[in-house]
Design a protein around this nucleic acid. Sequence first.
DNA 1: TTACAGAATTGTAATCATTACAATTTTAAT
DNA 2: ATTAAAATTGTAATGATTACAATTCTGTAA
Lengths: 146, 146
Amino acid sequence: MKQNKISDKEVYDYLANHEVKGSVQRIAVMRYLLEHHTHPTVDEIFTELHEDIPTLSKTTVYNTLKLLVEQGAAMMLTIDDKNAHYDAVKESHAHFFCYNCGKIIDIYNPEGIGDYEHKLPDGYKVQGIQLYYTGLCPKCASKTKN
Amino acid sequence: MKQNKISDKEVYDYLANHEVKGSVQRIAVMRYLLEHHTHPTVDEIFTELHEDIPTLSKTTVYNTLKLLVEQGAAMMLTIDDKNAHYDAVKESHAHFFCYNCGKIIDIYNPEGIGDYEHKLPDGYKVQGIQLYYTGLCPKCASKTKN
DNA sequence: TTACAGAATTGTAATCATTACAATTTTAAT
DNA sequence: ATTAAAATTGTAATGATTACAATTCTGTAA
Protein backbone atom coordinates (compact mmCIF):
# COMPACT_ATOMS: atom_id res chain seq x y z
CA MET A 1 0.00 0.00 0.00
CA LYS A 2 2.73 2.39 0.99
CA GLN A 3 6.03 2.12 -0.77
CA ASN A 4 8.22 3.70 1.86
CA LYS A 5 10.24 6.82 1.19
CA ILE A 6 11.12 7.52 -2.36
CA SER A 7 14.13 9.84 -2.62
CA ASP A 8 13.81 13.39 -3.85
CA LYS A 9 16.05 12.54 -6.74
CA GLU A 10 13.86 9.65 -7.81
CA VAL A 11 10.79 11.85 -7.79
CA TYR A 12 12.65 14.63 -9.52
CA ASP A 13 13.69 12.28 -12.28
CA TYR A 14 10.19 10.90 -12.55
CA LEU A 15 8.93 14.41 -13.11
CA ALA A 16 11.68 15.12 -15.59
CA ASN A 17 10.69 12.05 -17.57
CA HIS A 18 7.32 13.68 -17.97
CA GLU A 19 8.84 17.05 -18.82
CA VAL A 20 7.82 18.64 -15.56
CA LYS A 21 10.31 20.95 -13.91
CA GLY A 22 10.88 20.08 -10.26
CA SER A 23 10.15 22.24 -7.22
CA VAL A 24 9.64 21.60 -3.54
CA GLN A 25 5.88 21.63 -3.97
CA ARG A 26 5.74 19.54 -7.13
CA ILE A 27 8.07 16.93 -5.71
CA ALA A 28 5.96 16.74 -2.56
CA VAL A 29 2.74 16.22 -4.50
CA MET A 30 4.25 13.78 -6.94
CA ARG A 31 5.88 11.81 -4.16
CA TYR A 32 2.61 11.68 -2.28
CA LEU A 33 0.98 10.04 -5.28
CA LEU A 34 3.86 7.64 -5.78
CA GLU A 35 3.94 6.57 -2.15
CA HIS A 36 0.22 6.36 -1.50
CA HIS A 37 -2.14 4.30 -3.53
CA THR A 38 -5.21 5.58 -1.80
CA HIS A 39 -6.58 7.72 -4.67
CA PRO A 40 -6.46 10.88 -2.60
CA THR A 41 -8.50 14.02 -3.16
CA VAL A 42 -6.97 17.46 -3.43
CA ASP A 43 -7.96 18.15 0.11
CA GLU A 44 -6.35 15.00 1.45
CA ILE A 45 -3.11 15.73 -0.34
CA PHE A 46 -3.13 19.33 0.80
CA THR A 47 -3.89 18.53 4.43
CA GLU A 48 -1.11 15.96 4.65
CA LEU A 49 1.54 18.00 2.89
CA HIS A 50 0.62 21.17 4.69
CA GLU A 51 2.04 19.71 7.89
CA ASP A 52 5.49 19.49 6.37
CA ILE A 53 5.24 22.55 4.16
CA PRO A 54 3.26 25.15 6.10
CA THR A 55 3.49 27.68 3.30
CA LEU A 56 1.85 25.34 0.80
CA SER A 57 -1.26 26.71 -0.84
CA LYS A 58 -4.19 24.61 -1.92
CA THR A 59 -4.15 26.42 -5.23
CA THR A 60 -0.67 25.06 -5.80
CA VAL A 61 -1.93 21.56 -5.22
CA TYR A 62 -4.64 22.18 -7.81
CA ASN A 63 -2.17 23.71 -10.24
CA THR A 64 0.32 20.92 -9.76
CA LEU A 65 -2.16 18.13 -10.21
CA LYS A 66 -3.50 19.75 -13.34
CA LEU A 67 0.02 19.92 -14.71
CA LEU A 68 0.80 16.35 -13.74
CA VAL A 69 -2.29 15.10 -15.51
CA GLU A 70 -1.52 17.13 -18.62
CA GLN A 71 1.97 15.68 -18.72
CA GLY A 72 0.79 12.15 -18.12
CA ALA A 73 2.50 11.83 -14.76
CA ALA A 74 -0.78 11.28 -12.95
CA MET A 75 -4.38 10.59 -13.74
CA MET A 76 -7.59 12.11 -12.50
CA LEU A 77 -10.32 9.72 -11.43
CA THR A 78 -13.79 11.12 -11.96
CA ILE A 79 -15.65 8.10 -10.68
CA ASP A 80 -16.72 9.95 -7.53
CA ASP A 81 -18.98 12.81 -8.50
CA LYS A 82 -18.25 14.62 -5.25
CA ASN A 83 -14.50 15.08 -5.63
CA ALA A 84 -11.79 14.37 -8.11
CA HIS A 85 -9.33 11.72 -6.97
CA TYR A 86 -5.79 11.29 -8.21
CA ASP A 87 -3.52 8.39 -8.93
CA ALA A 88 0.01 8.04 -10.19
CA VAL A 89 -0.14 6.24 -13.48
CA LYS A 90 0.84 2.61 -13.14
CA GLU A 91 -0.02 -0.64 -14.77
CA SER A 92 -3.44 -0.73 -16.36
CA HIS A 93 -6.17 -1.53 -13.87
CA ALA A 94 -9.77 -0.73 -13.10
CA HIS A 95 -11.35 1.07 -10.14
CA PHE A 96 -14.24 0.12 -7.94
CA PHE A 97 -16.16 2.94 -6.26
CA CYS A 98 -18.22 1.99 -3.24
CA TYR A 99 -21.15 4.35 -3.02
CA ASN A 100 -21.60 3.52 0.63
CA CYS A 101 -18.17 4.15 2.14
CA GLY A 102 -16.84 6.25 -0.73
CA LYS A 103 -13.62 4.27 -1.07
CA ILE A 104 -12.01 3.61 -4.41
CA ILE A 105 -10.43 0.20 -4.69
CA ASP A 106 -7.96 -0.99 -7.32
CA ILE A 107 -9.12 -3.88 -9.43
CA TYR A 108 -6.49 -5.71 -11.37
CA ASN A 109 -7.79 -7.46 -14.41
CA PRO A 110 -5.81 -10.34 -15.81
CA GLU A 111 -5.84 -9.07 -19.33
CA GLY A 112 -5.98 -5.35 -18.69
CA ILE A 113 -8.04 -2.84 -20.55
CA GLY A 114 -5.46 -1.60 -23.02
CA ASP A 115 -6.99 -3.63 -25.81
CA TYR A 116 -10.07 -1.53 -25.96
CA GLU A 117 -8.17 1.22 -27.65
CA HIS A 118 -8.06 -0.80 -30.83
CA LYS A 119 -11.79 -0.88 -31.06
CA LEU A 120 -12.20 2.86 -31.51
CA PRO A 121 -13.11 4.17 -34.94
CA ASP A 122 -10.45 6.13 -36.83
CA GLY A 123 -9.70 9.70 -35.94
CA TYR A 124 -9.89 9.53 -32.18
CA LYS A 125 -6.79 10.56 -30.28
CA VAL A 126 -6.99 8.63 -27.04
CA GLN A 127 -5.33 10.09 -23.98
CA GLY A 128 -6.67 7.75 -21.33
CA ILE A 129 -8.93 4.80 -20.72
CA GLN A 130 -10.75 4.18 -17.48
CA LEU A 131 -12.81 1.24 -16.41
CA TYR A 132 -15.03 2.02 -13.46
CA TYR A 133 -17.21 -0.22 -11.38
CA THR A 134 -19.70 1.23 -8.93
CA GLY A 135 -21.55 -0.64 -6.23
CA LEU A 136 -20.89 -1.94 -2.75
CA CYS A 137 -17.48 -3.11 -1.65
CA PRO A 138 -17.34 -6.47 0.15
CA LYS A 139 -17.25 -4.83 3.57
CA CYS A 140 -20.27 -2.62 2.93
CA ALA A 141 -22.12 -5.34 1.04
CA SER A 142 -21.95 -7.66 4.03
CA LYS A 143 -23.01 -4.95 6.47
CA THR A 144 -25.98 -3.82 4.39
CA LYS A 145 -28.94 -6.08 4.76
CA ASN A 146 -30.06 -7.57 1.48
CA MET B 1 -30.14 10.07 -32.59
CA LYS B 2 -33.61 11.23 -31.74
CA GLN B 3 -36.27 8.61 -31.52
CA ASN B 4 -39.30 10.78 -32.17
CA LYS B 5 -42.11 11.11 -29.69
CA ILE B 6 -42.52 8.36 -27.22
CA SER B 7 -46.01 8.29 -25.76
CA ASP B 8 -46.72 9.21 -22.16
CA LYS B 9 -47.97 5.73 -21.56
CA GLU B 10 -44.77 4.18 -22.83
CA VAL B 11 -42.69 6.36 -20.55
CA TYR B 12 -45.05 5.76 -17.65
CA ASP B 13 -44.69 2.02 -18.13
CA TYR B 14 -40.94 2.32 -18.44
CA LEU B 15 -40.90 4.07 -15.09
CA ALA B 16 -43.23 1.52 -13.58
CA ASN B 17 -40.88 -1.24 -14.68
CA HIS B 18 -38.28 0.42 -12.54
CA GLU B 19 -40.68 0.92 -9.65
CA VAL B 20 -40.90 4.65 -10.11
CA LYS B 21 -44.27 6.27 -9.68
CA GLY B 22 -45.18 8.52 -12.60
CA SER B 23 -45.78 12.27 -12.53
CA VAL B 24 -45.76 15.03 -15.10
CA GLN B 25 -42.24 15.99 -14.14
CA ARG B 26 -40.82 12.50 -13.94
CA ILE B 27 -42.31 11.52 -17.25
CA ALA B 28 -40.89 14.62 -18.86
CA VAL B 29 -37.39 13.94 -17.54
CA MET B 30 -37.50 10.26 -18.36
CA ARG B 31 -38.81 10.91 -21.82
CA TYR B 32 -36.10 13.46 -22.42
CA LEU B 33 -33.50 10.82 -21.69
CA LEU B 34 -35.23 8.23 -23.82
CA GLU B 35 -35.60 10.54 -26.79
CA HIS B 36 -32.22 12.24 -26.65
CA HIS B 37 -28.95 10.39 -26.70
CA THR B 38 -26.88 13.47 -26.10
CA HIS B 39 -25.83 12.75 -22.52
CA PRO B 40 -27.42 15.94 -21.23
CA THR B 41 -26.51 17.77 -18.04
CA VAL B 42 -29.07 18.76 -15.43
CA ASP B 43 -29.03 22.26 -16.78
CA GLU B 44 -29.68 21.18 -20.34
CA ILE B 45 -32.59 19.01 -19.29
CA PHE B 46 -34.02 21.72 -17.10
CA THR B 47 -33.70 24.45 -19.71
CA GLU B 48 -35.43 22.39 -22.39
CA LEU B 49 -38.24 21.10 -20.23
CA HIS B 50 -38.82 24.44 -18.59
CA GLU B 51 -40.20 25.75 -21.88
CA ASP B 52 -43.02 23.24 -21.79
CA ILE B 53 -43.44 23.11 -18.02
CA PRO B 54 -42.89 26.64 -16.74
CA THR B 55 -43.44 25.61 -13.14
CA LEU B 56 -40.67 23.04 -13.24
CA SER B 57 -37.98 23.50 -10.66
CA LYS B 58 -34.36 22.59 -11.17
CA THR B 59 -34.41 20.87 -7.80
CA THR B 60 -37.03 18.53 -9.17
CA VAL B 61 -34.78 17.66 -12.05
CA TYR B 62 -32.03 16.86 -9.57
CA ASN B 63 -34.39 14.85 -7.39
CA THR B 64 -35.81 12.97 -10.32
CA LEU B 65 -32.48 12.07 -11.83
CA LYS B 66 -31.24 10.86 -8.49
CA LEU B 67 -34.29 8.66 -8.19
CA LEU B 68 -33.96 7.35 -11.73
CA VAL B 69 -30.35 6.40 -11.13
CA GLU B 70 -31.18 4.68 -7.85
CA GLN B 71 -33.89 2.68 -9.57
CA GLY B 72 -31.70 1.77 -12.50
CA ALA B 73 -33.79 3.69 -15.01
CA ALA B 74 -30.91 5.98 -15.93
CA MET B 75 -27.21 6.24 -15.35
CA MET B 76 -24.98 9.09 -14.30
CA LEU B 77 -21.84 9.68 -16.31
CA THR B 78 -19.03 11.16 -14.25
CA ILE B 79 -16.50 11.28 -17.06
CA ASP B 80 -16.74 15.07 -17.25
CA ASP B 81 -15.46 16.53 -14.00
CA LYS B 82 -17.36 19.77 -14.60
CA ASN B 83 -20.90 18.41 -14.68
CA ALA B 84 -22.71 15.15 -14.29
CA HIS B 85 -24.25 13.88 -17.50
CA TYR B 86 -27.15 11.47 -17.76
CA ASP B 87 -28.12 8.67 -20.06
CA ALA B 88 -31.01 6.27 -20.24
CA VAL B 89 -29.65 2.80 -19.73
CA LYS B 90 -29.40 0.91 -22.99
CA GLU B 91 -27.17 -1.70 -24.48
CA SER B 92 -23.71 -1.83 -23.01
CA HIS B 93 -21.39 0.68 -24.60
CA ALA B 94 -18.47 2.93 -23.76
CA HIS B 95 -18.18 6.71 -23.77
CA PHE B 96 -15.57 8.97 -25.27
CA PHE B 97 -15.09 12.37 -23.65
CA CYS B 98 -13.40 15.02 -25.77
CA TYR B 99 -11.54 17.39 -23.48
CA ASN B 100 -11.51 20.00 -26.17
CA CYS B 101 -15.17 20.34 -27.18
CA GLY B 102 -16.59 18.66 -24.08
CA LYS B 103 -18.82 16.31 -26.05
CA ILE B 104 -19.48 12.77 -24.93
CA ILE B 105 -19.72 10.29 -27.77
CA ASP B 106 -21.11 6.76 -27.64
CA ILE B 107 -18.65 4.04 -28.52
CA TYR B 108 -20.14 0.69 -29.33
CA ASN B 109 -17.79 -2.17 -28.74
CA PRO B 110 -18.42 -5.39 -30.58
CA GLU B 111 -18.25 -7.56 -27.53
CA GLY B 112 -19.47 -5.11 -24.93
CA ILE B 113 -18.04 -4.59 -21.49
CA GLY B 114 -20.36 -6.79 -19.49
CA ASP B 115 -17.75 -9.52 -19.22
CA TYR B 116 -15.60 -7.54 -16.90
CA GLU B 117 -17.99 -8.16 -14.09
CA HIS B 118 -16.83 -11.74 -13.87
CA LYS B 119 -13.30 -10.70 -13.14
CA LEU B 120 -14.13 -9.07 -9.82
CA PRO B 121 -13.12 -10.84 -6.62
CA ASP B 122 -15.89 -12.25 -4.47
CA GLY B 123 -17.97 -10.03 -2.25
CA TYR B 124 -18.42 -7.04 -4.54
CA LYS B 125 -21.99 -6.09 -5.36
CA VAL B 126 -21.72 -4.40 -8.74
CA GLN B 127 -24.30 -1.80 -9.65
CA GLY B 128 -22.76 -0.42 -12.82
CA ILE B 129 -19.76 -0.64 -15.11
CA GLN B 130 -18.46 2.23 -17.14
CA LEU B 131 -15.75 2.31 -19.72
CA TYR B 132 -14.50 5.81 -20.42
CA TYR B 133 -12.10 7.09 -23.01
CA THR B 134 -10.74 10.61 -22.82
CA GLY B 135 -8.90 12.44 -25.54
CA LEU B 136 -9.69 14.35 -28.70
CA CYS B 137 -12.63 13.46 -30.89
CA PRO B 138 -11.93 13.17 -34.62
CA LYS B 139 -13.18 16.68 -35.32
CA CYS B 140 -11.05 18.30 -32.62
CA ALA B 141 -8.06 16.08 -33.37
CA SER B 142 -7.98 17.26 -36.97
CA LYS B 143 -8.35 20.90 -36.01
CA THR B 144 -5.63 20.84 -33.39
CA LYS B 145 -2.16 21.00 -34.88
CA ASN B 146 -0.07 17.98 -33.97
C1' DT C 1 -67.64 15.62 -2.06
C1' DT C 2 -64.69 16.58 1.73
C1' DA C 3 -60.92 15.92 4.67
C1' DC C 4 -56.74 14.28 5.57
C1' DA C 5 -51.97 12.11 5.34
C1' DG C 6 -48.20 11.17 2.77
C1' DA C 7 -45.66 12.07 -1.28
C1' DA C 8 -43.94 15.17 -4.63
C1' DT C 9 -42.65 19.64 -6.02
C1' DT C 10 -40.93 24.15 -5.49
C1' DG C 11 -37.85 28.18 -4.32
C1' DT C 12 -34.43 29.90 -1.64
C1' DA C 13 -30.51 29.64 0.89
C1' DA C 14 -26.47 27.15 2.04
C1' DT C 15 -22.41 24.31 0.90
C1' DC C 16 -18.31 23.32 -1.04
C1' DA C 17 -15.08 22.01 -4.82
C1' DT C 18 -12.80 24.37 -8.21
C1' DT C 19 -11.04 28.41 -10.77
C1' DA C 20 -9.68 33.31 -11.69
C1' DC C 21 -6.67 36.58 -10.74
C1' DA C 22 -3.49 39.81 -8.91
C1' DA C 23 0.34 40.07 -5.81
C1' DT C 24 4.43 38.08 -4.17
C1' DT C 25 8.25 35.06 -4.26
C1' DT C 26 11.46 32.13 -6.49
C1' DT C 27 14.43 30.66 -10.26
C1' DA C 28 17.81 30.92 -13.60
C1' DA C 29 20.40 33.42 -16.75
C1' DT C 30 23.03 37.31 -17.82
C1' DA D 1 23.62 42.08 -8.75
C1' DT D 2 19.75 42.68 -12.16
C1' DT D 3 16.13 41.26 -14.34
C1' DA D 4 12.54 38.61 -16.77
C1' DA D 5 10.01 34.57 -16.65
C1' DA D 6 8.02 31.03 -14.01
C1' DA D 7 6.01 29.36 -9.85
C1' DT D 8 3.56 30.03 -5.73
C1' DT D 9 0.31 32.15 -2.80
C1' DG D 10 -4.10 34.06 -0.85
C1' DT D 11 -8.34 35.82 -1.62
C1' DA D 12 -12.29 36.40 -4.05
C1' DA D 13 -15.38 34.63 -7.47
C1' DT D 14 -17.94 30.91 -9.77
C1' DG D 15 -21.06 27.45 -10.27
C1' DA D 16 -22.86 22.80 -9.49
C1' DT D 17 -25.19 20.44 -6.09
C1' DT D 18 -27.76 19.86 -1.73
C1' DA D 19 -30.55 21.11 2.45
C1' DC D 20 -34.61 22.48 3.93
C1' DA D 21 -38.97 24.49 4.86
C1' DA D 22 -43.12 25.78 2.55
C1' DT D 23 -46.48 24.64 -0.75
C1' DT D 24 -49.02 21.74 -3.80
C1' DC D 25 -50.60 17.41 -5.39
C1' DT D 26 -52.43 12.55 -4.98
C1' DG D 27 -55.08 9.01 -3.42
C1' DT D 28 -57.89 7.10 0.00
C1' DA D 29 -61.50 6.92 3.56
C1' DA D 30 -65.26 8.90 5.71
